[in-house]
Nucleic acid binder design. Structure first.
Lengths: 316, 316
DNA sequence: GTCTAATATGATCTGATGTTATGAAGCTGG
DNA sequence: CCAGCTTCATAACATCAGATCATATTAGAC
């Protein structure tokens, strides 16, 4: 014999409020409805839940015990409702976000930290990858958002792309590097220094190749490759090596990493760093929250970058 | 927005069983029914509970979290069902039982102890009282059973009475009392001894008066009155006092109390000690259990009493 | 691709639950 | 002790969730 949880909740409310009429009101139901429901429940149970012939309806011992269980069921049910509400508002949920390693480590993770102080109940699972793999994960539901550099024209038809920043790369070196003071840098100037390269299959590596080619340098000596941002920063800080990094990464981490961008114009890839999502019927609401947050934060970052660029230009 | 607990339970089962079809089977429902229920729940929640386009149906993160709550709700609901079952079988419940003090203390409480080792989940609230008060309590639902001496003809019309023992009273004294060895006792023999009397409003007190009158003794000296059985036993044991007690009480407690019945025939009230209940539509099932138990136990006791009486007669 | 098993949908019926109106019965205060 | 108030139960009806069987659809596997 299975009881109806709803019935038990109603019973609990009646007992709590001390009467059927009050209970019905508290439940937002009509008094006859509640009365009949209790009659039905008593029939099924085969035992009285209320003392017979008592007018402010008083529960029997069995009624009281069942009401206690009903109250606990009600609490769980209410918790479920709260969970759903919180989820729908994007305040709860699990987000699986992946992106190109350097940008994730250098920029996005900072903002994830900020986001989580605001929405502590949103779990974020971060991982790394490049476009093809990430697109596959998005399609098969293994990922909620990819943060990748992408050309506007090459956004897959079944996906949405929200640009965050232009894919502006710079040559970076340690703050005290001989080249960082120079106003103009020639190809010959950078000739002596070894290079640190991102993994060979990363877009950043191709950027590096293209950038150097654009200033006429066809081959370059790679002294270290494949590390994450933390390794790259360590190596750069401890040597005179050079590398290519997104300017946003240099800008954000320079306080703590001691990196600087060389004043050497290199070709910018015609891509935008942005948020890629698969067009499903419904995306997790927390994803919208996160996307909006990230867009706002990155816009602020971009404004700071632009501001400094103007100041720098003005100063010469 | 209120969710249906039943829906959450179904969700929990689907997640537990790893698929809708299996879940439906485990729930004893048809597959289409469960499918539509989940569709309805998703509509109400406004978010998917299952990964879209996955064939062994797999829950989303929200689905999993709600399923956890559903499982807990299910556990509570099942506990409610068990409680009802246990109650209906008389294995759970609260019984409020009252009776005349001496008989309750001397006989019934012993059997209550035995009953509770068999049915530990039946709470028994014992109290004391005489007929009028107990009948009132039975009628207004403050009491489940009264154990009283009653004449068959004076059972109220709205009550049921199940006799347990004849209301056989004896004159009791301590085991070593001068009168306990005598085969025949005369009025003159008992003259010197003081009496212990039950409370003046108790039926036992009236029995005492009647009994003494029946053997020609019109007045008697009361040295102590009003105590419970424990006091009476103490006083009797420490003096040569006499009193009137139900034979069953003397029989059951003599081992530990050191009381004996004098071999003096006194008039027996034409009453039976028995169980009185108010005829309600439904009595607590545990009450039936207890009533049956008490009837059986007292029948055994009566058999022992009869057996001993025969042996004693034969020996002279 | 094709086949199979899992899920969704259509059509239909039953029963629970909601409503308003009204009857019955306990409680209360003079 | 009776009148009147309050509380609960019942009647009559409307609605919708939820059950069924039959069948369409589709994801996964070989």
């Amino acid at each position: 014999m299975k009881l109806d949880s709803e019935h038990l909740e109603i019973l609990a409310m009646i007992v709590e409020k001390g009467g059927l009429t009050e209970g019905a009101e508290a439940l937002g139901k009509s008094q006859p409805s509640v009365s009949r429901t209790m009659a039905l429940l008593e029939d099924r149970i085969g035992a009285p839940l209320f003392e017979p012939g008592k007018r402010p309806l008083r529960p029997t011992e069995l009624g009281e015990n069942l009401a206690r269980l009903g109250a606990r069921i009600h609490a769980l049910n209410a918790e479920a409702s709260r969970l759903v509400q919180s989820y729908r508002r994007g305040h709860t949920g699990r987000l699986r976000i992946a992106g190109t390693p350097i940008f994730m480590d250098g920029v996005v993770s900072t903002f994830i930290a900020d986001f989580q102080t605001r929405h502590p109940d949103v779990q974020i699972a971060q991982s790394y990858g490049y476009f093809d793999q990430l697109a596959t994960s998005l399609r098969n539901g293994g990922l909620d958002m990819a943060i990748v550099p992408l050309h506007q024209g090459s956004v897959p038809a079944d996906m949405s792309f929200v640009p965050l920043l232009p894919g502006r790369n710079v040559i970076a070196a340690r703050a005290g590097h001989p080249l960082t003071r120079r106003k103009t840098i020639t190809l010959a100037d950078i000739e002596p220094y070894p290079w640190i390269a991102p993994p060979a299959d990363s877009p950043l590596f191709r950027d590096l190749q293209r950038a150097l080619k654009s200033i006429g340098k066809e081959d370059f000596r790679v002294s270290f490759s494949g590390g994450t941002l933390a390794s790259i920063i360590s190596i750069l800080a401890g040597s005179d090596s050079l590398t290519v990094l997104p300017y946003s990464v240099v800008f954000l981490t320079r306080k703590t990493s001691g990196l600087e961008a060389l004043r050497l114009k290199i070709e910018h890839p015609d891509r935008q760093l942005g948020m890629l999502t698969f067009d499903r019927a419904s995306l997790p609401p927390a994803l919208r929250q996160f996307g909006d947050f990230l867009k706002d934060e990155v816009a602020l970052l971009e404004a700071r970058i632009q501001h400094e660029a103007q100041v720098t230009r003005r100063r010469g």
